[in-house]
């Protein structure tokens, strides 16, 4: 039971706790949080002094300054607000490859833990046939609960396309939207989906999950390829030409995805699952300042 409910090795949790999700987005939640806000508020972070004008709160007058200068100054502090982070996990069958699914869940948990740890608001959703209410929690105390929910996610069963249903499960007014998917859907579908995302979030991140097998398939001879999602089978006789054209098609798809993300201001990061969660988390994400 314990094993099933935890995905990340326990010794990692302290390591993860040191990091937090970085975002320059100005859209914040309405609740107090641990992130500095552009607005003035009541945090301990000093911002500046300002002359007192009638109407200002007299409680904010800095009496020490008045004693020295005999002028009224108001001492201002920056406000601290929460971030609203949403993680959207692709749970279509194409993700059901063992390594892929495992690492995808690990990434979800790790990122979610970082968010909760910072007392930010985390919501998590996936496309599902059943109407599962999305996870919405705030505060470090929900880390375990979140990990458990992710761990108990069943193997992907959704047959349809992820992009068709994704919009329905994303809440609005998000600071950060993290999309974890393999991106293996026609580019047109991605376009319709990604086009709508800027409306709901200020900072969108697309984590594309790939496997080595997808990047450079190592099949030889005659293979009957079985699509996990559509159950379609396709007979392919592997040869250098077939391999080459596969590479071409894949690269075209990737560059189209990148172009699409640029167009809608989405940060795009393709990661190879076979590199391992540690490398992805602490090297790649860190380097791109997704976390810090």
């Amino acid at each position: 039971m314990n094993i099933k409910n935890t995905i990340l090795p326990p010794e990692w949790s302290s390591k993860i706790r040191r990091y937090c999700l970085q975002s320059h987005s100005k859209i914040r939640g309405q609740y107090k949080g641990s992130h500095r806000s552009q607005r003035f508020g009541s945090s301990l972070e000093f911002s500046d002094f300002r002359e007192y004008h009638s109407g200002d709160d007299v409680r904010q007058i800095d009496w020490n300054v008045y004693a020295r200068t005999e002028k009224y100054y108001i001492k201002r502090f920056l406000d601290e607000q929460e971030m609203r982070v949403h993680i959207l996990l692709d749970t279509t069958k194409s993700m059901s490859q063992e390594v892929k699914w495992m690492v995808a869940k690990q990434l979800t948990v790790a990122l979610g833990a970082m968010v909760l740890n910072q007392d930010d608001h985390l919501s998590f959703s996936f496309v599902s046939e059943k109407n599962v209410p999305p996870f919405r929690r705030k505060g470090a105390s929900f880390q375990k609960a979140f990990e458990q929910i992710v761990a108990q996610l069943e193997e992907p069963t959704i047959a349809g396309d992820f992009t068709d249903h994704a919009m329905k499960v994303i809440p609005k007014d998000l600071t950060v939207l993290i999309i974890i998917s393999d991106g293996l859907e026609p580019i047109e579908k991605w376009r319709t989906f990604l086009k709508q995302t800027p409306k709901v979030a200020g900072d969108i991140r697309f984590l594309q999950i790939q496997t080595t097998q997808e990047i450079a398939p190592a099949y030889t001879g005659d293979v009957e390829l079985l699509d996990m999602e559509t159950k379609e089978s396709l007979n392919v006789s592997m040869s250098q030409t077939v391999f080459n054209s596969y590479q071409q098609l894949r690269e075209r798809h990737q560059s189209q995805l990148i172009a699409l993300c640029q167009q809608y201001g989405i940060s795009f990061l393709p990661v190879n699952m076979n590199d391992g969660i540690q490398y992805i988390l602490f090297q790649q994400l860190l380097k791109l300042h997704w976390i810090g």
């Binding site: 859907e185 390829l225 054209s245 596969y246 098609l249």
Partner: peptide, 21 residues
């Protein structure tokens, strides 16, 4: 006669296109 080895992949998106050619 040819025996195809079954291999499940995440998506035959690209393969289909190769075959389409």
């Amino acid at each position: 006669r040819k025996k195809y080895i079954q291999q499940s992949v995440s998506s035959t998106l690209f393969w289909r296109e190769i075959m389409k050619e």
